[in-house]
Each structure stands twice: as C-alpha cells, then as structure tokens.
C-alpha cells in the first residue's frame, strides 16, 4: 500500500504541473481529493489493513492528504488571482462620466493664497465697504487736499464726500478707530481707479493691505514679515530688495522687489530685462495717520503694506491682458 501512496502522490504532482485553469484544477481535486478520489479510496483500503500496518500507513496517509491539500490550495490561489486579472468583464478603457470641472476665479484664488500666509502669522482678516468716505480714503491717510499725491490715484466720485475707494487702506482707519492698539490685520478687497481700460489697466482691481501697530514695531520687523511672505509665496530661494518710495500714509516708505520668478533674475520680457519684479508697497505708518485715529505716535509705531492681486495673478500665470480676468470666458476660467 505504501507504493500506492507514493504513486498517488507522484500522479497528483505530475498532473498539478499541467494545470492551466480553475476547471482543470477542480477536475484534479475531484480525482484525488474528492469524495471518491484516490485519497478517499486509499483511506477505504486502510480500514482493511492490520493494526501494525495501520501505525505506519496512518502517518503516511495523513501526510499524503496534507501535502495534496497544500499543493491544491497553493494552485488555487495562483490560478484564481491570475484569472481575475486576465478575465475582462467590462471595457475599462471606455471614458468615465466626468462631472463639470469647477474652478475658482484666479483673482480670488490668489487673494486667498496671500491671506492664508498672513493668517498663519497672526494677521486677522478685516473687510470694509467699497463706497468709502473721502475722509477715510484720503484725508485720514494724510493725502492733503490739492496735493499732487492725489494724482497717484485717479478717483471715481459718488459726490464730494463719497468715493469708490481707491485702495483698501481706509479699512485700517476703520479698525484703528474702533480698537485700541495693538492691531494686526490684513484687509483684502476690491478697489477702483478712474483709468482708461486697456490691456494693462482696468477701472477696478483687488488689493490686500496689511497693518501692524504696537509698541516697538519697527521697519526691521516690516522687512522680516514681508520677506517671510515673499519666501512662502514665491519660494525660499527668492531674492529681494526694498527701495525707498512714497505713499502719503507711510514714512519711511518702500517698494519691495523680488527676483523675477519667470527668468530667475536673468532678465526677460516680463521683468523688462531688469531681473526684478515690483510686488508691493510698504512703510512705517505715518505719525499723522496715527494721530488722526487718536493713537499716540510717541507711544506706538506701526507698519503697513499693500499689494495688487491682479498684477500678481497675471505675472504668475503669464496673462498679458487684464481684461481677460473680467471677460469671464469659460474657456479661460476652466484653465485654472
């Protein structure tokens, strides 16, 4: 009987070699491990042998069944998983059902990216009205009447006392008039300039302004904050420079340039070969502004900054005509 056992084993393993699919595998199982298979037949025969023989044969028979079952299980797994892969039930290459691609307007998206950076370093977000008093828009911000500084911002007037705000800076007046120092906030929103509409200028655009007033706020810290912003937004390798400039509501005032992110500072069409891009204006809050809101310029100092969003969006996405931003052509919108 030992011969039969080893013969059964040989036959099983020989047959196992040629198994190609689950059908053949099932046939093999039935032939050997099934109710009337070779193994079952051997167990039937086993019942008839002597007790001495049983001791030896029992071990061998059990071993046979285990080995065959193990081989079968192994084969089953291999064959089933390969059959799963190779048996296509659907044409998976057919196109899927694609929902319409929703998009945010790039101006809003850019504004939010900027806001997020400042929020992380402790700036609150405050908004204000677009129809603003002449007082808040100009007078409080140290624009003297009949001063050429007013020419810097061509204004839409509602009447002699109200204007379409020309910058979001008046929101800083609103904050400081309702709160004692310290104040730290950014002020995003829409602003208007009475300028002819062409590829480079539009009668409205968006700004993010910022202000921080407290004891011991310095120009050095202004630089620190804006350098942090530039590195977060334009990448940590960005180079920068601060140039003296003029805004009525800050003194000293500066403009911040960064290395052109299109050409990396080598000079290109976008940066007009200079290697630099002007990205924002800033400065120390003018003592006249602090006085206007009732702060004591001998006790507190502050810094302020502001940047135009469209310009940043346009530079970033290589858009050469600002009007594209407000034409809302769906083919344009869906590109972002």
């Amino acid at each position: 009987m030992l011969n039969k056992i080893s013969e059964t084993k040989r036959q099983f393993f020989a047959a196992a070699e040629g198994i190609k699919n689950s059908k053949e595998l099932e046939d093999l199982r039935i032939a050997h491990l099934g109710r009337n298979g070779t193994v079952a037949t051997l167990f039937e025969e086993f019942k008839t042998v002597t007790p001495e023989e049983k001791r030896v044969l029992g071990k061998e028979l059990n071993l046979l069944r285990q080995e065959l079952q193990a081989k079968f299980d192994e084969l089953k797994e291999v064959i089933e998983s390969s059959e799963k892969l190779s048996a296509p039930k659907i044409d998976i290459s057919l196109p899927g059902r694609v929902p319409n691609k929703g998009t945010g307007h790039i101006v809003a998206e850019t504004m939010n990216e900027i806001i997020t950076i400042f929020k992380k370093i402790g700036f609150s977000v405050v908004t204000g009205p677009e129809i603003e008093s002449d007082k808040n828009n100009f007078e409080a911000l140290n624009f003297p009447a009949d001063h050429p500084a007013r020419d810097m911002q061509d204004t839409f007037f509602i009447n002699k006392d109200f204007v379409l705000r020309t910058h979001t800076t008046p929101v800083q007046i609103r904050i400081m008039q309702t709160q004692e120092p310290p104040v730290r906030a950014i002020m995003p929103g829409r602003v208007y300039r009475n300028e002819a509409i062409n590829a480079r200028s539009y009668c409205m655009f968006h700004q993010v302004d910022g202000i921080y007033v407290d004891e011991k706020v310095t120009f050095a810290e202004l630089k620190g904050t804006l350098v942090h912003f530039a590195k977060e937004y334009y990448g940590s390798s960005v180079q920068y420079k601060f140039r003296p400039s003029f805004f009525p509501f800050t003194e000293p005032s500066a403009e911040m340039d960064i290395t052109c992110f299109i050409c990396g500072g080598k000079g290109c069409r976008v940066c007009k070969q200079s290697g630099w891009l002007e990205i924002l204006g800033c400065g120390m809050v003018d003592p006249n502004v602090l006085k206007y809101v009732g702060y004591d310029p001998e006790k507190v100092t502050g810094y302020a900054f502001g940047m135009g969003i469209e310009r940043i969006s346009m530079l970033k996405h290589d858009i050469n005509d600002i009007r594209l931003l407000y034409e809302n052509d769906v083919r344009f919108l869906k590109q972002f």
Binding site: R184, A220, T225, K241
Partner: peptide, 22 residues
C-alpha cells in the same frame, strides 16, 4: 534700506473682528 535688518516675530491674532471672507 539694505542696511536695515530683517526681524521676525511670532505672533497671535490681535483683531477679533468677524472674518466675512471665511
């Protein structure tokens, strides 16, 4: 202006206005 150092200070929010944009 290049001679002015850049100083970073860690900060927490100071204005408690409602953020309409949120």
């Amino acid at each position: 202006y290049d001679n002015i150092p850049t100083v970073h200070r860690v900060s927490s929010p100071l204005v408690s206005a409602v953020d309409d944009l949120e």
